[in-house]
Structure formats: C-alpha cells, structure tokens
Computed example of a mutant assay.
Amino acid sequence: MNQTTAVPRLPLDSLPKRPPAKWKKYIWGYLFLLPAVAIFFTFLWMPIGKGIIFSFYHIDFVKGDSFVGWENYKRVFKDPEVMVSVKNTLYYMGLGIVIGFWVPILFAIAISEMRRLQGFARIAAYLPYVVPLVVLYGLWRWLYDPVGPINAVLSHIGFDTILFMTDKAWSMISIVIMETWQSFGSALLIYLAAILSIPRDWYEAAEIDGAGIWGRIRHITLPAIKTQVVLLFLLQLIATSQGFQTQYALLDGGPNNATLTYALLVVRYAFTRQDYGSASALGVLMFLVLGLLAVIQYRISNKEGA
C-alpha cells in the first residue's frame, strides 16, 4: 500500500506577513517633512535656479527678457569695480581672521580658567551679540567720531586723531573691530561648551605632573577643541565672503570704494544700475565659490566626526 504524506494547511492568519515597504513605514515622517521641503524649494532652490537662468538673459520688465548668452559674464569680468570688490572682500576676510577669529578662543579659554564669576563673564561676553544693529551702528559712529571717546583717549596719550570712517586705510579695519566686538560672543559659547566638556581628570592629572596654565592650554585645551576651531574657521570664511550689511549701512562702500565688497557690488548692479542679468551672473560666481567652501566644510565635518 502506498503511503502519502499530506501537507497540513495552515490558517491564513498564521502565514508570515510581507514587511511593509520602507516608504509606507516612514510615510508620516515624510508628510511632516513635506511643508519644510516645499518652503525650502520655493524660497531657496527655485530662486537659485532662476538666478542661474537670468544670468544668461538681459532682464527688461517693460520690453521683455532677451537671451544674451555669456555677455553678462563677459561684462562683469571687464568691470574694474568687480576686481576692486574681490580684493576688498579678500582683505575683509583676512582682517576677520587676523583680528577677530582668535578673540572668542582666547576669551573662552580665559573664562574656563576662572574660579569665580564665570557665569557673569559668559553673560557679559554674549551681551553685545543681542544689541540691535541700529543701536550698534549709532554707538560705534559715536566712538569712531573725530571728537569721540577713542580719539579723545588717543589725543590724551599723544597720538594723532584717526579718521576711522573716512580714511581708506582705517575704514575696513574699523568695521572688522566693530563686528568682532558685536559677534564674538556666539562663537565664544561654542568654544566654551567644547572646553567644559573636556574631562576634568585630564587637567587634574596635568596639575599633578606639574603642568602650569600654559601647559594645560597647549597640551589639553587646544587639541581638544581642534574640530570646533576648524569648522568655525570655515564658517567665518563663508560669512565674511558675503559681507554686505555693515559696509552698506555705515559707509555704502566708501570712502572711494574702500569698503565695496563683492556682495555690495551685486546689490548695486541689481538695484542701482537695474542690471539684473549681470547681478545674477555675479551671484552665480559667488554661489560656486561658496559651494566649494561648503563642500570642504562638509568633508572636514565628516572626517572629524563632528
């Protein structure tokens, strides 16, 4: 007699279910992200795309736009003010590094070494950052005035009066000093948070081994905040390369184009000369340079694990 083995039938409820697709699993997350993506696309990427397109057109709101190819780029490369603005921007970036970049690092280290009044020092260092810009500009115009407090002190100790706002040699330096005073508090908090996250055991061991304050800073503090220093250095380069607001509000690019930055020249092309095609071409060139800096910052962030 032949024997057959019957396969028992399992109820449908006991059969293994197919896992849901990934998009179904995260559907609610995607829906919550959708408004932010839509806003980002509408107000950032769409204007960038239109700016690239407009850089190849002569924009005329009355007669209509006309395609001109690379003429806008040729025009801006022939404009001597473009090279002046590039040099001023590089000079502004360099001054920001030489004068302002090290200030928050030094203050953060100094505050971290304080045994008393550390909280008060943090608040006092951050307060200039919350000063309204209108008040800030008025305050520093008064300080930089030929008969203002700074020149009064310089005259008292035997120095000549410095024309901070009207002397080409001092105008950009004056702007960098003012912006350093106003904005170093935000970077200081980042550095201070990194320093305070260093295990205190390291400092105690260094003190037991006889290391002084400079030894602790050199061998413990500075190596521990290296990642923050590199990232904020790149962020400062990106921010200063777009310098515009202070140069426009205080001096409008003067005296004699001494504070005419690249971003300010773009605004002049667009709203003073009403040459939106050339302004778009300048904007595209800036976008490419800043995109390169952003890629470098991203690669360094990944490399350092930040």
Rank of each mutant, 00 (worst) to 15 (best):
N2P: 09
Q3F: 13
T4P: 12
T4H: 12
T5V: 15
P8G: 09
L12P: 11
L12G: 12
L12E: 15
P16W: 14
R18K: 13
W23G: 05
W28P: 01
P35G: 03
A36P: 04
V37T: 07
L44Q: 11
F56K: 01
D65E: 15
S66L: 05
V68K: 00
G69Q: 04
W70S: 13
E71L: 13
V76I: 12
V76A: 06
S85V: 02
T89H: 04
Y92I: 02
M93H: 06
M93I: 12
I99L: 01
G100W: 00
F101M: 02
V103K: 00
P104Q: 04
F107D: 07
E113V: 05
M114F: 06
Q118H: 11
A121K: 09
L127D: 13
P132Y: 05
L133I: 11
V134N: 09
V135R: 13
Y137W: 11
G138H: 10
L143Y: 01
L143H: 04
D145R: 09
D145Y: 12
P146H: 02
G148Y: 03
S155N: 14
D160T: 07
T161N: 04
F164Q: 01
T166M: 08
A169E: 06
A169Q: 05
V176K: 00
E179G: 02
F184Y: 13
I190T: 07
Y191I: 06
Y191R: 05
Y191Q: 07
L192Y: 13
I195L: 13
L196M: 15
R200P: 06
W202L: 05
E207T: 11
H219E: 11
H219G: 09
T221N: 02
V229Y: 02
L232Y: 13
L234T: 02
Q236I: 01
L237P: 01
T246W: 07
A249N: 15
L251F: 05
N256G: 11
L260G: 00
Y269M: 03
A270G: 06
T272N: 11
S301V: 04
G305I: 04
